[in-house]
């Protein structure tokens, strides 16, 4: 099969909350040579299920195959290949206290975030935005010499 048009795609996988279910998902991606760009997982409130969000890339045909293979896993309840979605990623970033704090504060506010912690030597900000904008935030943050940036991975919800 030719995977000609490699587009970024986000899928949500609703799974039964049981041991090793995440391994089944990631092992399937590994065994069949599918790519995982980011992966998040958390329980769905008031249910026995969890929501896994996977950002991946590939052609429409490959996505169809990924979706079907995921469906085959016994604990997989539902697979949603997102088209019309709201997609967000959260990022934590740590800067030296000597950097321009006003600039850093404005920057994080511009990406739906703000300062979440200030210590003796470090300031920590949190932002949450679309993956594309998160990329811009990380680029912009570089000039303030970030000590550490932790990305949370994408979560998505169908509109």
């Amino acid at each position: 099969m030719v995977h000609s048009i490699n587009e970024r795609r986000v899928i949500s996988v609703i799974v039964m909350n049981e041991s090793s279910v995440l391994t089944r998902i990631t092992a399937l991606f590994a065994a069949r040579g599918y790519n995982i760009e980011s992966l998040t997982v958390a329980p769905i409130p008031n249910s026995e299920m969890s929501h896994i969000t996977i950002a991946t890339n590939g052609s429409a045909k490959l996505m169809e195959q990924i979706t079907k293979q995921l469906h085959k896993l016994i604990p997989v309840y539902k697979v949603i290949e997102h088209e019309e979605m709201v997609e967000k990623e959260m990022v934590l970033a740590k800067f030296p206290i000597a950097e321009n704090l006003a600039d850093i504060s404005v920057l994080s506010a511009a990406y739906n975030g703000g300062v979440v912690n200030v210590g003796k030597e470090m300031i920590i900000v949190m932002v949450a935005d679309e993956p594309k904008r998160i990329k811009h935030f990380i680029e912009a943050a570089q000039r303030y010499n970030p000590c550490e940036i932790v990305r949370g991975g994408v979560v998505a919800i169908e509109r």
């Binding site: 099969m1 045909k61 169809e64 195959q65 079907k68 469906h71 085959k72």
Partner: peptide, 9 residues
């Protein structure tokens, strides 16, 4: 019976 077989190859 296995949807994943359809369109795989």
């Amino acid at each position: 019976i296995d949807a994943a077989n359809i369109g795989k190859l």
